[in-house]
Amino acid sequence: MNVDVDKELLFITVIGQDKKGIVARISGLLYERNINIEDISQGVMQGYFVMTMLVDLREATADLENISHVLQQLGDEMGLRVQLQHQNIFKAMHRI
């Protein structure tokens, strides 16, 4: 995933059981709030299905609190753990 310093980039991490509609429902929520998806990756880590989305919030029509809240709600509905985190935390954890 390429990280562009000019953009307001955050990662959405979805962890749980793979099922239909995860990408569709999250994408729908993001589209409604004018959030662009820059990249999507997925895999199986330590027995968990993991999907990560890199999203750009520069032109978002909702604030972070709202976006985080609706993602959590969706996660609860679908039995998934959903985490929204700014890219800087990944830079700090994984890059010198």
Binding site: M1, N2, I15, T52, R81, Q87, K91, M93, H94, R95
Partner: peptide, 17 residues
């Protein structure tokens, strides 16, 4: 700068689990 799914999972799981 690139992050792979393993790196994102490792950091996210620190707060989640």
């Amino acid at each position: 700068m690139r992050f792979d799914v393993e790196e994102v999972f490792e950091t996210a799981s620190m707060t989640l689990y």
